[in-house]
Design a protein around this nucleic acid. Structure first.
Length: 412
RNA sequence: CGGGGCGAGGUGUACUGGCUGCACGCACGGUUUGGGACCGUGUAGAUCGAGUUCGAUUCUCGGCGCCCCGACCA
């Protein structure tokens, strides 16, 4: 992709925030804040988000089927589960033209999560023991009216999330699937570059179950949560369930929650009057669990973890582009033509390349922007590089001159 | 939701009870091109309401917005 004509910019004068992800993502114009806790994802930012979500999708496809549920739903779905008045972050929307003669004036809910929505749908079709177990997932925008959105993408009022729901004939079967889902989650965080710093912590199961829920927590100094490590059992506990003794005996670890899995029992299936018929023709309750991953929050967490004083350092799997190609022509048309040729060849070889084709922008600014944007590789074509291309990795200062064929080999 | 801070061109900021200034950006012209180039000419601004005052961007109160601390996070 070309830098020019694609809403790819840098705004290095943008204000500094207390959280790195808010500052760098806005300086790099990956995202643009529309209001507190709500961001537009611009071309660079959307590419990163989609990379993250594609990794999640590939792994989820091994244990479920993708669906796309509505974000806007009738209040009835939330009233059925008793949550319309208890979930205080719920956005309740009444159309501005409510009351006018020809318009509906109902109140709606902007879904903060989808248990209430998916259980009635599942209960309409998956009615036999032969249908169970099964799971569906989606990757969608969620709405939560947080009292205090903060920290860039770490806590928003509108954000992206993958949510998976599994349905089972028994709690034992749910437990078996649950363990499988954990393994898939571990693979996802590995692929996202967070594996080494992400642990599973036990947390409260809330109103739904006496069991623990499980949180995937990434170690992060700027994280909002605190967990404690019981070294004897080698188990991590969220602050809310860690015993006072453990909290005294060990130091808390600052973390940010990147995923959670939650046994739900039969609360939502019962509310939806969703029963299945067993082999004996008897109606039986369906057990359910939900599994979330905050994809946009992960984008923020990655920036928090992987940056230096010059900008972002994306893990290769989620970088917006593999290589940032910088043309330094000095007004020399021959050099520009060479940079164009390199761009065309890389593109033809299916290398994801961001080509900074801006004229009249100083070399320093282009190189600075490459550091800010944070692609794994930087390639420079200039009057100094002759027939070669100078390449370096974002994480190193070591430069190397290579041919276009070498470059393609290296990057594919 | 409690507490604190801040609201000025597109962005970031300074001064100021009467005339708003700077930098970046953007536009035009010219010179430049390996770590955020330079000259010139332009462009564009005081969150809203009430009060005090001859006069408010400035002072007071309130609303709204944003940032930060705390609480919350199914």
């Amino acid at each position: 992709m070309r830098y020019s004509h694609n809403l790819i910019k840098s705004n290095k004068e943008a204000r500094e925030f207390d959280t790195v992800n808010a500052t760098l993502l806005q300086k790099g114009v990956f995202i643009d804040q529309t209001m507190a806790g709500v961001f537009a994802f611009l071309p660079l930012g959307l590419r990163v988000l989609q990379k993250i979500e594609q990794i999640i999708r590939e792994e989820m496809d091994t244990i479920g089927a993708e669906v796309f549920l509505p974000a806007l739903v009738p209040t009835k779905l939330w009233e059925q589960t008793g949550r319309f008045d208890t979930v205080d972050v719920l956005f309740k929307a009444t159309p501005a033209n409510a009351g006018s003669a020809k318009r509906n004036d109902a109140t709606y809910v902007l879904n903060s999560t989808h248990e209430d929505t998916v259980a009635p749908i599942a209960g309409k079709y998956m009615l036999s023991y032969r249908d169970l177990p099964f799971a569906v997932y989606q990757i969608q925008t969620k709405f939560r009216n947080e009292e205090r959105p903060k920290s860039g993408l770490l806590r928003g009022r509108e954000f992206r999330m993958k949510d998976l729901y599994s349905f089972h004939a028994s709690d034992e079967d749910r437990e078996a699937y649950y363990e499988k889902a954990k393994e898939v989650y571990v693979r996802i965080f590995d692929r996202l570059g967070l594996g080494a710093d992400t642990v599973i912590a036990l947390a409260s199961g809330g109103d739904f179950t006496d069991d623990y829920s499980h949180e995937f927590q990434t170690k992060l100094d700027t994280g909002e949560d605190t967990i404690y490590h019981d070294e004897k059992e080698d188990v991590f506990y969220n602050k809310e369930v860690a015993s006072p003794e453990l909290q005294k005996a060990t130091e808390g670890i600052q973390v940010s929650e990147v995923g959670n899995i939650f046994p739900l029992g039969t609360k939502f299936t019962e509310a939806a009057e969703y029963m299945y018929t067993n082999e004996d023709g008897k109606q039986q309750p369906v057990y359910m669990a939900s599994y979330g991953i905050g994809s946009s929050r992960i984008m923020g967490v990655l920036v928090e973890k992987f940056h230096d004083d010059r900008g972002i350092i994306w893990p290769a799997n989620v970088a917006p582009f593999t290589v940032h190609l910088v043309g330094i022509s000095g007004g020399d048309d021959a050099v520009t033509a060479k940079a164009e040729a390199v761009y065309e060849k890389l593109t033809a070889a299916n290398v994801e390349v961001l080509y900074d084709d801006r004229a009249d922008v100083s070399p320093g600014e282009k190189l600075g922007d490459a550091d800010l944007v944070g692609c794994p590789w930087r390639a420079v074509v200039s009057g100094k590089t002759g027939d070669s291309i100078e390449i370096k990795q974002r994480t190193s200062d070591a430069m190397e001159l290579v041919t276009i064929d070498d470059l393609i080999t290296k990057l594919t």
